Structure formats: C-alpha cells, structure tokens
Simulated assay, not measured.
Amino acid sequence: MSDRLAAELHEVSKRYPGGVTAVDRLSLRVREGEVLGFLGPNGAGKTTTMRMLVGLVHPSAGRIQVLGEPPGRQLARIGALIESPTFYPHLTGRDNLRLAARYAGVPDAAADRVLDEVGLTARARSPFRTYSLGMKQRLGVAAALLKEPSLLILDEPTNGLDPAGVAEMRELLRSLGRHGQTVLLSSHVLAEVEQVCDRIAVIDRGRLVAEGTPDELRGALGAGVLLIDADPTDTALTCLRADDRVRAVEVVDGTLRVSTDLALAAELNRRLVTAGVEVRELRPLRHSLEEAFLELTAPTAPVPVPEQPEAQHATTGAAR
C-alpha cells in the first residue's frame, strides 16, 4: 500500500432541495493500492459519495480529488459499478461488453478477459434479459474491469449472488488487492469486507464515525476488557473485585468481562489460580466486525461534529 492518494474528500457535503443532507462534511482518503471497505447503514450517504467521486453528482461544498484531478477528469482510469447495472436487454453479455469496450477505447478482446474473471464465460452468448440478478451484478463488475482501471469503485458487488458467487467475487477482490489495484468497496456483507479489505471507513448520517483496519475496529470496542471463563464464578468475582486495578467486573453468558489494563492479564490469572479458581480461558475481548458496526451506527450513537473551518473550501467539481 502506498502513501499516495488515489482519492481524497475534504469536508465534502451534499445537500438536496428540501433540506435533505446526504453527506455532511465528510473527509476521507483512499490510498493507492489498498482495498478500502466503505460501510454504513442504508441512507448513510455511501452511494452519494461514490457518485460524487465519478462526477455523476456535484458536491454542495468541500474539495474532491480523484487520481490527482477533480471528479470526472480521469474517467479513463476509473472503473465503477454504482447501484444496479444497466445494459441493452436484447444484446448478449459479450456484445454488451464489446460495445462498452469500444466506448472506452479498449480492444474487443477485453470483453472475453473480464467475462472469464467474473465467471460468466458460459453465459456470454445469452441475452442480458435472461440473466439473474447475480449474473447482472457480475456483468456490471466485468464492465468496470474493462479498462484495467487504476481505481475501482464497487457499490454492493455481491448483491444477488448465491454463496458460491459471493466466494468467487471475494477471491476476485482479493486478487485485485494482491496486484496493487485500488478498490473502494461498499458492501453489507461484513464477512466479505473483513476478509478482503485492508482498511474500513464507517459513515453514518453522512459523517465519518470510524476508520481503521478490521482488527482496529473490532478491538476498539473491547479495549481494556478481558474475557475470563473461570470456575467457581463467585470466587473469581470476589477475587477480582478486591483488586483496585480492576475498574469493573460483570458476568455475561457465564463468563466474566473484566475492565482493566490488558497488561495485567498474566498477574490476574496468577491471583485467580492462587485463590483456587480454575481459569479455563483468559483473553482480550474482541468484538466481531458486525458488533462493532452495529454499535458505531446505532441510532443513539453520537456522530462526531467536525470543527468549523476558518474558510469554506470551493467545490472543485461544480465549476465544470
């Protein structure tokens, strides 16, 4: 992963008529060569953000750079699947891609290459209207790959795929990441994001609420908490509560959740064993990515309020 940026949004907002704010002063960086997961509940502003990155929607405020240019200036180096893919229904999958290739200025042979990459070669001669939802998604991803883009923007690429198709798409995304492709991936399949993405950005109500590696997001919610499976539980509780370095102890599903400095784990284990407690498990608590996502985007979760800038940045895309 490079320190150079494939895309950057700085204090970007998008307001629609009627007072609807889809994106609210969002700052986000996509590094070259990384696969960045872009998560958020429905209506969080993910698709609007992606549409702004490719120049389909102009921001109301803020600054956007994509591959060193304002949005829309580098479309020859960008591949995108945003919302539902649309093709000519009477044309075959191959003919649709060949037509797209000619518009993009790439050889017809690229169509066969990407059909193979997304596993559609066997249905290449079938009309698009006969495709299932999952096959339509695959063809949309294939079209996004035609130009071998420097930046690939994918909005829910596994929508409609069966479990085998999800696994194949996941392997494709992994392959792109291994070859240094920059990918911005929006998905509700958290297992896919966890296994594929180098970093994750979570937005809620149009604002960035968390950013980091999957491990960092999982660990943040359980920071400073030990999970201890001990018997007898009552003796363990008494022992731990007597230690003034333990901030809190609670029993959840038969195991202890101990709020303390994680560096004290070995010492607390010794104290429990000395007190006659059998310690069957002792480890730092790590939430699943799903638990982290749900807590970060809960209706009662606070949304960070950005500091007021000294001066409003001009919108780079709106002047075109």
Rank of each mutant, 00 (worst) to 15 (best):
M1T: 08
D3G: 15
A7Y: 07
E8S: 12
L9R: 08
S13M: 10
R15D: 00
V20R: 13
V20I: 13
V20Y: 13
A22H: 08
D24N: 15
S27K: 11
R29A: 13
R31E: 08
E34R: 12
L36M: 06
G45I: 09
P59A: 15
S60D: 11
G62W: 09
G62N: 10
L67T: 03
L67R: 05
G68T: 02
P70M: 05
P70L: 01
R73H: 13
Q74S: 14
I78K: 08
I78W: 03
E83P: 01
S84F: 14
S84C: 12
S84Q: 15
P85W: 06
Y88F: 14
T92C: 03
G93K: 11
G93S: 10
G93R: 10
D95M: 09
L97M: 12
R98D: 03
L99D: 02
A101M: 10
R102L: 05
Y103L: 11
A111W: 05
T130G: 01
S132F: 06
K136D: 04
Q137D: 06
G140T: 01
A142V: 05
K147L: 04
S150F: 00
P157S: 01
G165D: 00
G165V: 02
L172C: 11
L172T: 09
H179D: 14
Q181E: 09
L184R: 03
E194R: 03
V196G: 06
R199Y: 00
I200D: 10
A201P: 11
I203S: 07
G206K: 10
V209W: 05
V209K: 08
V225M: 00
L226W: 04
A230L: 01
A230E: 02
T233D: 08
D234N: 02
D234I: 04
T235P: 00
A236G: 08
T238R: 15
C239T: 15
R241I: 00
A248L: 02
V258E: 06
D261P: 07
L264K: 05
L264H: 09
A265W: 01
A265Y: 03
A266T: 12
R270L: 13
E278M: 14
E278S: 15
A301Y: 12
E310D: 14
A319N: 09
